[in-house]
Design a protein around this nucleic acid. Structure first.
Lengths: 127, 127
DNA sequence: TGACATGGTCACGTCAATGTGACCACTGAA
DNA sequence: TTCAGTGGTCACATTGACGTGACCATGTCA
C-alpha cells in the first residue's frame, strides 16, 4: 500500500499470495475476529465483548481491513441508535478451513515448541 | 519474552498456541527459510543466495529463532573456513504440511482478495 | 603483502503495528 | 437535564520488526 501524488491510497497486489495473506492474518487480531464471527453474525460492541481486550480503535481498523479483503461484510442499519452487523463471507468461511488445520497443528505441537525453547535456553545458559 | 532481575531472558509460553506459532511464522522471512530448507540441508551462504534479498542480519536472527523453536537444527563443523549446516527437524517438516494447505488456499483465492480490494476501493472512491 | 571467503555480531536508524484516551452525533431513559 | 449506549474517528506515544553498513577471526591463494 502506498499513496499517489493526489493522496489516494493504492493497494498493490503482493507478488506472493501467501505473503499477502500472512500479512493480514499475521496481525494480532484478525484471526480472533474471524473465529468470533465463525458461529454467526455479531454487532460491533458484541465483538468487543466477545474478544475482551481489544480496543475500539484496533477492532475498527481490523474490521475495515477484513472487509476490504472480502473476508467479512459490514451491514449498517440506519436506525437510532445505529446498528452495524458483521458477518463472514463465503471467502471468510473457506479460509477458516485450512486455517483450522494450522490451529490443530499448533495445539498438537505446542508442547514440542515450548520444550525446544527450554532445551535451547538450558544449553545456552551454561555458557 | 522478558528479563529476570539478573538479566537473563525468559521465554514465556503464550496462552494461545496458534498466536505463538503465528508470531514466529508471520514474520517476513521464517516461512521462506523453512521452504528453502524443505528439499534438504543448506549452508548459511547457500541460504542467502537461495532467498536472494535477505540480509545476513535477518537471516542470522531468523535462523536462531527457528532453531530455538525446534524447527531447524544448526550444525557447526569446526573446519577452516567454518562450515555451518541448517536442516529441518521432523517438527519443521510436520509444520509444512498444514502450512501447505494454507499456501494452496492463498494461491486459489488470491484473485478473490485482489478483486475484493478493487471493489472496495471503487465503492469508496466515488465518495 | 593484501584480497577473499566463511559465518556471523554490533550499533544505529526507520517505519509500521499497536495501544491510550479524548471526542462526536444521536437519542431514550432517569 | 444529564447520563449512558451505539459505532465509530483523531492525535499521540511506544514498541518491535526490519534494514544498512561496519567490523571480526581465521586461513588460503596470488
Amino acid at each position: 500500500m502506498t499513496t499517489t501524488p493526489d493522496g489516494k491510497e493504492v493497494i498493490f497486489e503482493q507478488p506472493c499470495p501467501i505473503r499477502d495473506v500472512l500479512d493480514r492474518i499475521g496481525n494480532q487480531w484478525s484471526l480472533l475476529i474471524l473465529e468470533a464471527l465463525a458461529p454467526g453474525t455479531l454487532r460491533f460492541n458484541a465483538l468487543m465483548r466477545e474478544i475482551g481486550d481489544i480496543s475500539k480503535q484496533m477492532l475498527s481498523r481490523t474490521l475495515k481491513q477484513l472487509e476490504q479483503d472480502g473476508f467479512i461484510t459490514r451491514t449498517l442499519y440506519p436506525e437510532v441508535p445505529p446498528r452495524v452487523e458483521y458477518t463472514l463471507t463465503p471467502l471468510g468461511h473457506s479460509f477458516l478451513e485450512p486455517m483450522q488445520q494450522l490451529v490443530d497443528w499448533a495445539d498438537t505441537h505446542h508442547h514440542a515448541i515450548v520444550a525446544a525453547r527450554a532445551r535451547y535456553q538450558a544449553e545456552n545458559d551454561q555458557a
